[in-house]
């Protein structure tokens, strides 16, 4: 069945597609990694953040004819505000839980995910949307018979740029250092006049903005509907855990690995089992390294 298709070109094409998709997975997951690294909270509504970003991009296109690529900064800005507001209105209170803090955070964000899906269905209807014509959509570059779709290619570049920017931000700016300090010792930073809540709100905003970028890129080649986040949520959690919680670079590496593993699994197993490859690699990695590849926590 698949034996005939294993030509060198097919393998290279699969790896190339897997790499591009993997960089995008990394970009989707990095916001999750950032928020977790900052305050030890897993956002179970992360997939729904992605869904909101995709809708935002879609509506900017539908009503104002702004191309998804152009609107990406707008979407990121919108998601920044959204993320910060969610933190201030809801997550802040989940952080204060005196008992079962972990469970409270999991189920608060999980409940939030359900509400967001319901609201999306209520306001946007359950119709499947997509952006039919965009600058990137449907365009592709062919090098020696290997096809590189432009949306994913740009997504990969944005992903690399975002990771580089994030690295610079955390390690070279005052605010980044404040985030690092808050993460290491939230109690002590209060003494030097850093408002913990502001830093956390900023962290949530930044995390959401990053998934906003991913959503804007994806809007140009993916379909959009209220449940779309579910397809990506588990992959994002596995990506972060594989790379190691608390490591932004881990999410980057994790994304690439997930993309490549997914592509190669589909070459050797029936494609309906390709996620099994991703999950198996995750289990294998954490059995050997219980804190993921680059995890510190």
């Amino acid at each position: 069945m698949w034996g005939t298709t294993l030509t060198a070109q097919a393998i290279i094409q699969s790896l190339a597609s897997g790499l591009l998709m993997g960089l995008l997975y990394g970009l989707i997951a990095v916001g999750l990694a950032l928020i977790f690294g900052l305050m030890d909270v897993t956002n179970f509504a992360h997939g729904e953040f992605l869904m909101i970003a995709m809708y935002l991009s879609f509506f900017l296109f539908a009503f104002f004819a702004i191309d998804p690529l152009l609107s990406a900064p707008l979407v990121a800005a919108g998601l920044f505000i959204f993320g910060a507001v969610i933190y201030l209105l809801i997550v802040r209170f989940a952080m204060r839980a005196k008992a079962n803090a972990g469970m409270v955070q999991i189920f608060t964000t999980f409940g939030l995910a359900i509400v967001m899906r319901g609201l999306a269905q209520f306001f946007f209807t359950p119709d499947y949307r997509s952006i039919p014509q965009s600058w990137l959509g449907g365009k592709t570059i062919s090098i020696a018979g290997i096809f590189l779709p432009e949306p994913q290619l740009v997504g990969a570049l944005v992903s690399i740029a975002a990771f580089a920017g994030l690295y610079f931000f955390i390690h070279r700016t005052d605010f980044g250092r404040a985030i690092e300090a808050t993460r290491e010792d939230p109690g002590a930073v209060a003494l030097v006049g850093i408002d913990k809540n502001r830093v956390f709100a900023f962290g949530w905003g930044l995390g959401a903005a990053l998934v906003g970028l991913a959503g804007a890129i994806m809007a140009s080649f993916f379909y959009i509907y209220p449940d779309v986040g579910a397809s990506f949520a588990l992959i994002a959690y596995v990506t972060v855990a594989l790379g190691g919680f608390g490591s932004v670079f881990g999410a980057f590496a994790g994304g690439i690995i997930v993309g490549l593993v997914e592509a190669t699994t589909a070459l050797v197993l029936p494609p309906s089992l390709k996620s099994v490859g991703i999950y198996a690699v995750y289990l294998l990695v954490v059995f050997i390294r219980p804190r993921g590849l680059f995890g510190s926590i």
Binding site: Q13, S14, S17, M21, I235, A263
Partner: peptide, 8 residues
């Protein structure tokens, strides 16, 4: 999330 391998 992706059908690249299948389409290939």
């Amino acid at each position: 999330p992706s059908l690249s391998a299948e389409v290939q």
